[in-house]
Amino acid sequence: MPVHTAPRPLPALARPVAEALAMVRFARKVFAAGASSIAGGRFPVAESVVQTWYAIRVCTLPALAVSIPFGIILALQVGVLAQEVGAVSFTGAGNTLAVVRQASPIITALMLSGVAGSAICADLGARRIREEIDAMEVMGLPVVERLVVPRMVAIVIVAILLNGVVMFFTILTTLSISVVLQDLPPGSYLASVTTLAQLSDLWLSLTKAAIFAVICAVVASYKGLGAQRGPTGVGEAVTSSVVTNFILLFAANFAISQVHSTFAGGPIG
Rank of each mutant, 00 (worst) to 15 (best):
residue 64 L to I: 12
residue 142 P to K: 06
residue 129 I to Y: 07
residue 152 M to E: 06
residue 139 M to K: 11
residue 49 V to N: 01
residue 71 G to T: 08
residue 39 A to W: 15
residue 59 C to R: 01
residue 110 L to S: 00
residue 141 L to D: 12
residue 153 V to I: 13
residue 146 R to H: 14
residue 55 A to K: 00
residue 70 F to T: 15
residue 55 A to N: 03
residue 117 G to A: 02
residue 98 A to L: 10
residue 108 T to R: 00
residue 147 L to C: 08
residue 66 V to P: 01
residue 140 G to S: 10
residue 107 I to R: 01
residue 57 R to G: 10
residue 53 W to I: 11
residue 113 S to D: 03
residue 62 P to M: 05
residue 153 V to S: 03
residue 106 I to G: 01
residue 62 P to L: 03
residue 111 M to Q: 01
residue 50 V to C: 15
residue 62 P to T: 06
residue 125 G to M: 04
residue 121 C to I: 09
residue 60 T to G: 04
residue 88 V to W: 14
residue 132 E to C: 11
residue 89 S to Q: 14
residue 76 L to V: 12
residue 37 S to Y: 03
residue 95 N to E: 10
residue 36 S to C: 08
residue 105 P to H: 08
residue 118 S to I: 00
residue 94 G to K: 02
residue 140 G to V: 06
residue 138 V to P: 08
residue 94 G to F: 11
residue 132 E to G: 04
residue 91 T to W: 05
residue 29 K to A: 15
residue 151 R to G: 07
residue 60 T to I: 10
residue 102 Q to K: 14
residue 115 V to L: 07
residue 158 V to H: 10
residue 38 I to A: 15
residue 100 V to S: 04
residue 109 A to T: 03
residue 146 R to W: 12
residue 104 S to E: 05
residue 112 L to E: 03
residue 134 D to F: 10
residue 128 R to V: 07
residue 87 A to Q: 13
residue 90 F to G: 07
residue 122 A to K: 03
residue 124 L to H: 02
residue 84 E to D: 13
residue 144 V to K: 09
residue 108 T to M: 04
residue 47 E to S: 15
residue 98 A to N: 07
residue 68 I to G: 01
residue 160 I to R: 07
residue 33 A to C: 06
residue 105 P to C: 05
residue 116 A to H: 00
residue 54 Y to C: 00
residue 71 G to V: 02
residue 135 A to C: 09
residue 154 A to M: 03
residue 164 G to Q: 08
residue 63 A to L: 04
residue 64 L to H: 01
residue 85 V to Q: 11
residue 91 T to E: 07
residue 70 F to R: 05
residue 57 R to M: 11
residue 46 A to L: 15
residue 119 A to S: 13
residue 41 G to P: 01
residue 31 F to N: 06
residue 157 I to E: 01
residue 99 V to H: 03
residue 150 P to A: 10
residue 129 I to P: 02
residue 33 A to F: 02
residue 34 G to M: 10
residue 61 L to S: 03
residue 103 A to R: 00
residue 93 A to L: 03
residue 74 L to P: 02
residue 128 R to K: 14
residue 73 I to L: 15
residue 94 G to A: 15
residue 165 V to Q: 02
residue 63 A to K: 00
residue 160 I to D: 09
residue 81 L to W: 14
residue 74 L to D: 05
residue 105 P to N: 07
residue 134 D to Q: 10
residue 45 V to G: 05
residue 101 R to K: 08
residue 108 T to D: 07
residue 89 S to E: 15
residue 71 G to A: 06
residue 65 A to N: 03
residue 112 L to Y: 06
residue 71 G to Y: 01
residue 127 R to F: 08
residue 81 L to F: 13
residue 66 V to M: 13
residue 163 N to I: 06
residue 161 L to S: 12
residue 91 T to M: 13
residue 133 I to V: 14
residue 144 V to Y: 08
residue 80 V to K: 13
residue 114 G to F: 02
residue 75 A to C: 06
residue 30 V to M: 07
residue 151 R to K: 14
residue 102 Q to A: 12
residue 91 T to A: 09
residue 75 A to M: 07
residue 105 P to Y: 01
residue 59 C to I: 08
residue 102 Q to E: 15
residue 100 V to G: 00
residue 144 V to S: 14
residue 29 K to S: 12
residue 157 I to S: 14
residue 61 L to V: 14
residue 37 S to V: 04
residue 85 V to I: 15
residue 119 A to R: 01
residue 65 A to P: 00
residue 121 C to P: 03
residue 84 E to M: 12
residue 52 T to C: 11
residue 103 A to M: 13
